[in-house]
Every structure is written in C-alpha cells, then in structure tokens.
Design a binder for these strands. Structure first.
Lengths: 114, 114
DNA sequence: TCTATTCATCGTCTTATGGCGATATGTTTA
DNA sequence: TAAACATATCGCCATAAGACGATGAATAGA
C-alpha cells in the first residue's frame, strides 16, 4: 500500500512542479514565508489563479500554509524541493551545451565545405 | 535567451516526468536499451499510446532513439534523470513518514482521551 | 514484387488543466 | 453591525493531454 502511495505522491509532486507559474512561486517563496497579498502583486495573474496554484503546491505537500488573522501565509515545507529543481536545471543545461556543441560542429563542417 | 531556454526546458523535463506510464517506461529502460517491440508487451497500453509517450520523453531529451533496421531502439540519455526521480521519492517518503507520525500522535491523544 | 513486421502519425473522443470573473467565507476595522 | 479586506471556491471557457483504432511509411523476408 505504501508502494502505491509513493508512486502516486511522486507523480503528484512532479505534476505540481511542471508549471512555470508554480516554479516562479517557489522561487519567490525561497526568500521566506509570504502571505498571499504579498505574492499577488508580484505575479501578473488573477487572485483566483494564484490561489489555485498555491493550493496545488499545498496539496502536493510542497508548501505549508498557516492562517494568521485574515491573512494566509505560505512557505516552503522542505527546501529539498530546490535540490530537485536544481538537478532538473543541471540536466537541462547539459542538454543545451550538447546542442551548442553540435551546432559548432555543424558550423565547422559547413565552413569546410566551401 | 539561454535563460528562457533553461526554464522552458525545465518545465518540459518536469512535464515529461509527471506521468505514471512514462515513469514506468524509464524504470523499464533503466535495464538498458530496448526496442519498441520489446517494450510493448510489458505495458498494458496500445502501441500508439506507448509510441506517443516514448516520443514525449525523447522530445524532452530524456531518451535517445536509434533506428536499427525496422526497429527503433530507445535508451536513457543521461542516467542523472534517475537521481531526480530518487530525490522526488525521497521527498514523498518524508511526507508519508510525517503523515504516519502525525497519525500516531493523533491516535495516542485519542486513546488518552478515554 | 508481394507480404509481414515495426513503428510513427492522424483523427477523434474524453478528461484534465489553466485562466478568469463572480461569489462566498471569515476577519479585522470603523 | 456595517464596511473593508484577504482568500478560497465556483462556474465557465479554451486549450492541452491521454487514450484508442486506423492509416501510413519504411524495412525485411519470401
């Protein structure tokens, strides 16, 4: 049973991370906890949209939420999530540099042709 | 420009990983390169579906593809992708154990109540 | 050359996702 | 208690994504 839960959670976490707005939200929250009214002006999205995104990250257990008076404060639950993102970036960078390398080789062979 | 590319690729990679079938495909391919006709019987999905999933992983630069006669062989391009998945699992496990911990505490307090 | 095999792609359907405005809910403040 | 504020949620639309069967294209073998 735990096995199934882990693979479900795995997909849930990865799905939550696979959206540009949510990645920006995480980056924004890397500076520490913020209430929604602070977050909103930093994003060019409607309040309902941001709220929904925050909730998706919360449901995936990536964000923590605490209600403080009439405000709701969100923060990163486990900074390990940034390690994941960094690894993805690292993979992406490897791909890009390989592409650039291929580009150079291609260019060189095109020049040699003339 | 590279900046935008990295964040695009980041989302592309994460999206590619956020599907249970594709994660299973990666796991299956962790044993080494396989042609599609080997992969198919291992999955209860139509040929077209598997082909599409493989293509998504290929487009995200996670899989490599080589045509060999009438076969197409897929393999993991960079094993670092498994590091990413392991980190996600680790995050998921932390969440589950925290949940279990909370469950115990709740149970204990319920018992104490009686 | 005809046939079978292997795989990608297309068309279609259904469901999921992201976006928004409007509305509901709870909380301070006047 | 009324008004203002802060958020979540609802209902809707448009687009994306996953699934399948059917078709297409390439290769291998008879």
């Amino acid at each position: 049973m735990t096995q199934k839960s882990v693979s479900d959670l795995r997909v849930k976490i990865l799905s939550a991370l696979s959206d540009p707005t949510r990645l920006e939200l995480l980056e924004y929250l890397s500076g520490g906890e913020r209430c929604v009214c602070e977050i909103l002006p930093a994003f060019q999205r409607s309040q309902s949209t941001i709220s929904k995104h925050l909730n998706i990250l919360y449901e995936a257990d990536i964000l923590e939420r605490k209600v403080d008076g009439k405000r709701t404060v969100y923060c990163i639950k486990d900074p390990q999530v940034f390690e994941i993102i960094r690894m993805v970036d690292s993979l992406a960078l490897t791909q890009i540099s390989q592409l650039a390398e291929a580009g150079k080789i291609l260019e060189k062979s095109l020049n040699n042709r003339s």
